[in-house]
Design a protein around this nucleic acid. Structure first.
Lengths: 200, 200
DNA sequence: GTCTATATCCAGATAGAC
DNA sequence: GTCTATCTGGATATAGAC
């Protein structure tokens, strides 16, 4: 083990080391392709510690799930706290999500890309969690105050964020090869003004 | 085993019975939560037959993957063959996808919702498969002939189909409770004309 | 609380009769 | 080609020393 690694381990709590390692492995290989031993080895902790701290593999996944959800919630709250208009709030959210897809790839991947129901069957689906509700609420507010065209709430939310989320998926799958912020301005333009060529 | 079941089994080839059963189980429980024995029991075939026909669990998944991809390809081709304009082609595609999400739920779920890379690591990602390329091509054509606003190809495709795909995901997750065709008209309006309220 | 060594279980895969 | 019975590896989880 390198000196750098030792330093890093000393600076991180054992819990964090387990969670960080698990996040990397789950995202890279998929939950069911990762064994407790894999996590144990890569995190340089004993298997006993893992069972003491989290009670098992599913315990790790659950802790991780709530951890990344709370990070997501922070992100949404940081935008809401600015009290911008609805449209501008959505834009900031998309900008932050695009940036974090590049800088915090695995966190975003675990929130937006993982199929939690498969390994955490008891938990509610992500999209019904608070940060996602908050995103839909922002759109709702915009419709109420006339910033955003009136329409069905699901349609509105899917249209505002659907394009961005689709691009995040494609980026995480390696299909899009440029960093997402490259597309930010252009995406906003078509999202708000539409795809149809203006007549006259 | 009921009389109806026997009739159904007699009318289906053993291959189809295995694939149909596997599709249902994979979608409902997730690939790794389904054992070969589960498939074997529910399809009323012996485990030996499964290994003879598909060589194992991964063989089933691979066959299924190409099967549903070809169904998806048919769907796209059926629209392309009509030689409509680009915008109208996209609309028809979305309409068909919405309808099939209700009538062929598991097929759509396996194509659009499953994480194939986790259990078929050798296969290319779905979104790089032909039907998805064809969808992007339709959008491209529309930009070339002036039907659709000029912009980055990824942004355009994500915006045209992103809202629809997002709604399909939400529907498959049980978050949206109404059948998707309900939203068809409204979705098209905002997709093409945008979300921003017109000035004046 | 942390570790190693071990127990238990069940999945995928195979063997060999028919 | 189809079946049942069986093997084997590897996973989760535990026991018990330190």
């Amino acid at each position: 083990m390198s000196y750098i690694m030792k330093l890093r381990e000393a600076s991180e709590s054992i819990d964090r080391r387990i969670l960080n390692t698990a996040l990397d492995l789950f995202v890279e290989c998929g939950y069911y392709n990762v064994s407790v031993h894999d996590i144990q080895k890569q995190a340089n902790v004993s298997i006993g510690s893992i069972y003491n701290h989290f009670g098992g593999k599913e315990g790790i996944a659950k802790a991780l799930y709530y951890h990344v959800l709370s990070e997501m919630e922070e992100l949404v709250n940081s935008v809401v706290a600015q009290k911008l208009g609805a449209v501008e709030s959505c834009n900031q959210l998309i900008r932050l999500l695009f940036e974090q897809t590049e800088s915090q790839r695995n966190t975003i991947s675990f929130v937006l890309h993982a199929k939690h129901r498969e390994f955490l069957p008891e938990e509610p689906p992500v999209c019904s969690a608070t940060p996602f509700k908050a995103m839909r609420d922002i759109v709702q507010t915009g419709m109420a105050n006339g910033e955003i065209r009136q329409c069905d709430p699901w349609v509105a939310a899917a249209n505002v964020f659907g394009g961005a989320i689709r691009m995040i998926h494609l980026r995480l799958d390696g299909v899009i090869e440029q960093p997402l912020p490259t597309f930010y301005e252009e995406l906003l333009k078509v999202t708000w003004q539409g795809m149809e060529v203006n007549q006259g």
